[in-house]
């Protein structure tokens, strides 16, 4: 058996820092606090449209986080997470338009339903590995738009027409616009969910999940209940992506079957890989990439947008094959090595 690699992730670093008895607010904590502070004041300095775009970046980041929990941390491959995003969006849209449920209650509902569906899908997925699992999830992504358009379900889904969703109003005691309110609402949800993910990952459960990724047989031999953890991870991953979908429905104010096709799943996967597998901040970078790079490509050339997009993707993976997170890690390691000699661990 190979010796386990030293985990160089941020959580492990924080753990080591604490184990060494370092002061509790590590530089990483300061960085995080600074980022949250910037995120809190940003809407007052930006135009509404930019605020809206940043909201979408966070939403994609959250969806990618869901995929990351499954693929990056647990090693189960999914090419169909757009389906969970779509499911979450539809739950919110149907609850709001048909049953007049307040928007904030639709998030737990979307998350819960996606968790159950994801868990159930995780059961047959246990038998499949690698590319065969990819095909099963791929089937999910391809099938969802067809099912949503199916005339037997039109009473709920609105068929090809889709459903229009009302944008949530800001509470009357706050002097901010709707876009800003949605930004803060999304920011709060995203922070809570990221904190949750960080806690899962650094807990005993998280180590079990990663052990299954690194070596399923060895993990089972050490007494980890692999089927249970794998299906639960599938469920939690679907929950995260489903909540992102619910937020997405609120932001875009419209759901239609063709917005949740195969390409959404592929974009999420691209975001995950470019952000960095198994990295939490990388997810937000992935969200930035998913939202901005296609727009950038459009601006460079309308006719050749796809070509430009493809070339940018190629350049990014040529420069940083293990994603933004891996790249940052590499740069930090280089800088600290050249600055001072690190004591051998």
């Amino acid at each position: 058996m190979t010796t386990p690699q030293q985990d160089s992730g941020p959580i492990a670093a924080a753990f080591r820092a604490r184990a060494r008895g370092a002061a509790w607010p590590t530089p990483r904590h300061w960085l995080l606090a600074g980022a949250v502070a910037v995120a809190l004041v940003l809407p007052f300095f930006l135009q509404d449209f930019l605020v809206f775009q940043l909201t979408e970046v966070m939403i994609y980041g959250l969806a990618i986080l869901g995929l990351n929990l499954l693929t990056g941390f647990n090693g189960q491959f999914s090419v169909g997470h757009g389906a969970f995003y779509g499911l979450g969006a539809y739950v919110t849209a149907i609850l709001m338009s048909r049953y007049e449920v307040p928007y904030y209650w639709t998030l737990p509902a979307a998350g819960g339903i996606c968790f159950v569906v994801g868990f159930l899908f995780g059961l047959p997925a246990l038998r499949l590995e690698g590319l065969y699992l990819a095909l099963a999830t791929f089937a999910l992504a391809v099938a969802l738009p067809q099912v949503l358009k199916f005339h037997g379900l039109e009473a709920w889904t609105g068929g090809v027409q889709g459903i229009v969703v009302d944008q949530p109003d800001a509470p009357s005691f706050l002097p901010i616009g709707e876009d800003q309110w949605l930004y803060y609402f999304t920011l709060a949800v995203v922070l809570i969910m990221f904190a949750g993910a960080a806690n899962i990952v650094k807990s005993r459960t998280g180590r079990a999940i990663m052990a299954i990724r690194d070596h399923p047989l060895a993990a089972t031999a050490m007494g980890i209940n692999a089927p249970l953890y794998k299906t639960l991870t599938f469920g939690v991953s679907a929950l995260y992506t489903g909540v992102a979908g619910a937020l997405g429905a609120l932001a875009v104010q419209f759901v239609a079957p063709d917005s949740f096709g195969l390409f959404l799943s592929i974009y999420l996967l691209v975001g995950l890989i470019i952000g960095g597998m198994g990295s939490l901040p990388g997810c937000l970078f992935g969200g930035l990439f998913v939202l901005y790079v296609p727009n950038l490509a459009q601006e460079v050339s309308r006719g050749l947008a796809g070509v430009v997009y493809g070339v940018i993707m190629l350049l990014v993976i040529f420069v940083m094959p293990s994603g933004a997170a891996g790249f940052t890690r590499l740069v930090v390691a280089r800088l600290s090595r050249s600055g001072r000699r690190e004591p051998p661990s």
Binding site: I273, G303, L304, G306, L314, I317, P321
Partner: peptide
């Protein structure tokens, strides 16, 4: 020698380039 998933992005990039081309 890139990670297997980086290759996947390569395929998607190729897809996008050819389709738009």
């Amino acid at each position: 020698k890139a990670p297997i998933l980086a290759l996947l992005v390569g395929f998607i990039a190729l897809f996008s380039i050819l389709n738009s081309g």
